[in-house]
Design a protein around this nucleic acid. Sequence first.
RNA 1: GCCCAGAUGGCGGAAUGGUAUACGCGCAACACUUAAAAUGUUGUCCCGUUUACGGGAUGAGGGUUCGACUCCCUCUCUGGGCACCA
Length: 818
Amino acid sequence: MNKEKYDHSKIEKKWQDVWKKAQIFKTKFGNNGKNFYCLDMFPYPSGQGLHVGHPRGYTATDVYARYMRMKGFCVLHPMGWDAFGLPAENYAIRNKIHPSLAVRQNIQKFKKQISSFGFSYDWSREINTTDPDYYKWTQWIFLKLFKRGLAYESDAPINWCPSCKTGLANEEVVNGKCERCGKQTESKKIRQWILKITQYADQLLKGLDDLDWPESIKTMQRNWIGKSEGATIKFQIINNKLQNSNKYIEVFTTRADTLYGCTYLVVAPEYFISNLKAQIDALTASKPKSQFIFENLTEIERYCAIATKQLNIDKQHFDKNKTGVEIKGIKAINPINQKEIPIFVSDYVLNEYGTGAIMAVPAHDARDFEFAKKYNLPVIDVIQNDDTGILPFLGEGKIKNSNEFNEFSSNLGAKQIILKLKKQGLAQKHIQYKLRDWIFSRQRYWGEPIPVIHCPKCGVVPVPEKDLPVLLPSVKSYEPIGTGESPLANIREWVNTKCPSCSGDAQRETNTMPQWAGSCWYYLAYLAKNNSKFEILNSKLFNNWLPVNLYVGGAEHAVLHLLYVRFWHKVLFDEKIVGSKEPFQKLINVGMIVAPNGQKMSKSRGNVISPDDLIKKYGADSLRLTELFIGPFSQSIQWNKNGIIGMRKFLERIISLKSKISPKSNQKIENGLNKMLVKVDKDIKSFQFNTAISAMMIFVNLSIKEKSISKGQYKKLLAVLSPFAPHITQELWSKLGKNNFICQQAYPSYKHQKKEQIINIPVQINGKLRGEIKININDKKEFIIECAKNNPKIKLWVNGKIIKTIYIPLKIINFVVK
RNA sequence: GCCCAGAUGGCGGAAUGGUAUACGCGCAACACUUAAAAUGUUGUCCCGUUUACGGGAUGAGGGUUCGACUCCCUCUCUGGGCACCA
């Protein structure tokens, strides 16, 4: 056999150059009809370069983008670089090069690697979040947030990473450790910029319902937002020295139905210090009163000091015995039955959630139960528990031991109890979220400067829009200083400026934005990019292209990027900059590819498999197929070094199939082709690329076996394969004498398959396969059943009587026999 | 502890409640070759007779059904997320 040599390197380079020159992937804007926005999560260009896991998602979106173009859509498929943030800065520090230089080098490397796959990106829309023309608009959006009161300064304690020397958002702390470097975070009080994402909590929650996203991601966001509906209830504090003080402790509860079971209150240590004690002290201006009220103040204060100093990590040991101290000298009154109950301070109550104080119902809460056992506190069972009677019982049920509320359901009882107390001004319905505001400032160099100026006379003054961008100054020393201030604070000539309002001496904000800022609007930037500038106010453009039709990326951003970006988008909707309420209509997660030993690929582990070597040896087309054939797209999977060999062989078989083109074809091949076209079409739509590729293989195997395929059939094969393997299909296409681009052809049509007249259907006895009969599809049911009964193999099994006959037309026959 | 996925040959996996193991890798035999590689052909879930056939098997156990990898219940294990959120 005279086999053609498959010189993939030559072929791939040739066509990549031709495509680039012809600009065939440049999106033609202005077409208001069938637009399709196909978006990848843009990468952070690390110094390590790509490993084989990164291009899995990019390959899938490229197949999809090419498929949609062939279906007649005007497709926007862009790529860019998320280059601000800690990793870029840490890389620069480690390698002793300036971040701006490191980023430039890394982008170059990434772009070269990504380009070698032959992805159909519109590179004229490439963006880089560290480009001043880009971050000008990141700052501009920040000012919109500021002017809407959604950005504020605070001195409240935050998560601090002692290694990265910066504050972190709650979303960036994983198990009490810094998401980036793995060091334990501390609680530190420094001035911070905070975004009021909680104001959008309900919208962020409700918006999820209409999104075509994986249920798991939606669930994660719902849990993170953590909506709880309940009530706040006021407990009066009493003390014989405090006459009619009208001091209350307010608690939040979702189980007002258990109020009769409340036998004590617990407050968080922080709550005691800054609320309870502070209130008492404030009663008389002259001298602190608290030591006269609290009989064991020293003991309480000692406990609070230890508890508040503890690192987050220590608070997470659940099995750790609960600790606490009774606040002696005061009692609380349970408002529903006027009983006097003790008050404790304990660190099992979180100051940041609810009111910082709880009503403890040991019979119906595991934590309260544990605490009550330890300190011998009464346990009053107020919910009927039909099953076991074991306490604590956490479920709902009929109320008991609760006077007029007995026999009520939990639901109704809670409502009635709240209603009764509300009339006395002691309760209020309340919705509580777990979501906290977004700690938005970082004490680091490599980020967008926050565009505000601090003026001793005018306070915080936003930088006027005309002065944007506030350029990140170019400096030699950019290492974090760890004082709670950004390294920018040391650059006097940059910090000192004039107040835009009063023209007096003023100082620039020295904190920078977190790495998530730039990615909060980049999908708009691709649209807004015009030459090197951005037209972010072009709402018509946005309306034509938003929301993004398809967004593909890893699941690790579930509560970080994917929550933040939705928040910004909703603010921009309120600003009437975008017309859609959500940024991404459909989201698909790409599964991670791990090393053959099951570990995550990383340079430090030395198990990185680079796409460069594979492309060199087998070609980009083979690697593209491997990325998709390896397994179900959203499932994470171990890399198998032999997988690519099969893909290479498949492409070689397609090349050799060309020599088998003959003028005549047969019906078998035509049927096979139709079946394949239907399957591939359906599978691409549902992101089942592995079975789409397998369907093409089955057809190729059939064609080789039958030794005859017509030119028309071969062309259709090349066309459906072209989104997966664009280079070799283009090469073969041109070898057939075509001088146009295969990727610009219409997607191959398929006839609705002519049903075969004679088919085999299986025959079962009692659900077990016992034989097969040939039938004509026009045969009558009775005739078919008769045929089956008379089949010699079946006869052997039908000794007794046939009790029942099940016939599913053209599918299966099942005889039920005694 | 709670929430969400998942468990099918030696490996990755396929299967609208209707012939389980498609497709690929690996392995074996044969052909071509002086030889090897490449390629091609055939075979490849397990057990028994080795053509035909019969029995068993989709993490374990139960259930619904004429029929279950698929639906329901219980359990085991694996991966991911949350984590004293009242």
